[in-house]
Design a protein around this nucleic acid. Structure first.
Length: 336
DNA sequence: AACAAACAACGTCACTTCTC
DNA sequence: GAGAAGTGACGTTGTTTGTT
């Protein structure tokens, strides 16, 4: 009977993709999935073509892959549920010796037919190519967002965000991620050095830096570092924010106030990119730069730029320590 | 070196709420 | 009451790993 074939195939498919995504990812998948499955009139979409077209609206490849992952996740969940319903029904019907032509067996066949069509969706999605390479939208570049800002834009942003003064200074100097400011950047002065310790995010068993520590001489030429030193001398020991989104919103607003005619917004990641550029321009070796940014792989650093014209006041640290040894980018060395 | 996949994080919109 | 800060929902990007 073809029903049993379908069930077997569906089970094998589920078995092959057994890992459960993180809670947060599941939430994202659900949100995306619901969005994609909705038709303009608010009913559930039944045509796969329409759903795929919607999932592909963005020209960014990663958006498409994310959408696809969300759809497949939702479909898989549906198949899982249908399989277990089917299983229960089948047991009951068999134990009661219900005849084949009974309506209840028909109900069972309908459920299996649904599984079969879900499997077709999965197959189709799996084979669906992403947006063609030439047409893909290039990734939005934070580096480009920095164009046209004055040399002292970081200082000006600090001045315009009094409430977040310590956090902005700490982020400008360390280049940490906004999310890392939520757990807080520890600051101290030790042996003539300003020392910042960052509790890393984006850390998993295999990736990220659990913590990292950067230090600068307290008499650095950078006004940002000097300002931060002054804050620490006055008693500050933890640069912390409550909510990364509010912080980011405040910075965006401050940027809009400072440069009303600029289209590109100023965001916390601009500070991170600027710091990365300072690090690069200062001649730090690439392993230290990766560690300072909280990466565990040297490859990642390539995404950050070297656009920065060397100018005084670089925020580059004198030394960096990190929790994890760096994975080397072997790709670079061998070839030619 | 380009591409693909996975997933956590960031950014924006369109407001509401807080603060001076 | 104006302007800054905050927020929920939605949409996009960043980071790492692996493959071709």
């Amino acid at each position: 009977m073809q029903e049993y074939e379908t069930i077997k195939r569906a089970r094998a498919m589920l078995q092959a993709s057994r890992t459960e995504p993180a809670e947060r990812t599941v939430a994202t998948y659900k949100r995306r999935g619901e969005l994609l499955m909705q038709t303009p009139k608010g009913q559930h979409a039944s045509r796969l073509d329409a759903v795929i077209a919607k999932a592909k609206r963005s020209k960014s490849a990663s958006t498409w892959f994310g959408n696809r992952a969300a759809l497949m996740f939702g479909i898989r969940r549906g198949i899982e549920a249908a399989l277990s319903t089917q299983d229960k029904m089948q047991r009951e019907l068999k134990s009661e010796n219900v005849p084949e032509n009974d309506i209840r067996w028909q109900e069972w066949r309908d459920i299996v037919a649904k599984v079969s069509s879900s499997m077709q969706w999965i197959e189709r999605l799996q084979n669906e190519p992403g947006p063609p390479v030439g047409e893909r939208k290039p990734r939005h570049s934070k580096r480009k967002d920095l164009r046209g800002l004055p040399d002292d834009w970081r200082e000006r942003i600090v001045a315009r965000m009094p409430k977040y003064r310590l956090a902005v200074l700490a982020q400008a100097v360390t280049g940490c991620r906004p999310e890392e400011l939520v757990s807080g950047v520890q600051l101290e002065i030790r042996g003539g050095q300003l020392v910042a310790t960052i509790d890393g995010v984006k850390v998993s068993e295999k990736s990220g830096q659990e913590w990292r520590r950067l230090s600068w001489p307290i008499d650095s030429a950078s006004p940002l570092i000097r300002d931060l030193v002054r804050e620490v001398e006055a008693g500050a020991s933890l640069a912390q924010i409550r909510d990364a989104k509010a912080y980011s919103g405040a910075m965006r607003a401050a940027g809009a106030r400072a440069w009303p005619r600029r289209k590109a917004t100023v965001t916390p990641y601009c500070l991170r990119h600027a710091a990365a550029s300072d690090f690069k321009a200062s001649g730090m070796d690439s392993a230290s730069i990766s560690e300072a940014l909280g990466h565990s792989s040297e490859v990642t650093k390539k995404y950050y730029g070297s656009w920065h014209q060397a100018r005084g006041g670089s925020v580059a640290p004198q030394s960096v320590e990190a929790a994890r040894k760096l994975k080397r980018d072997y790709g670079i060395k061998k070839s030619r």
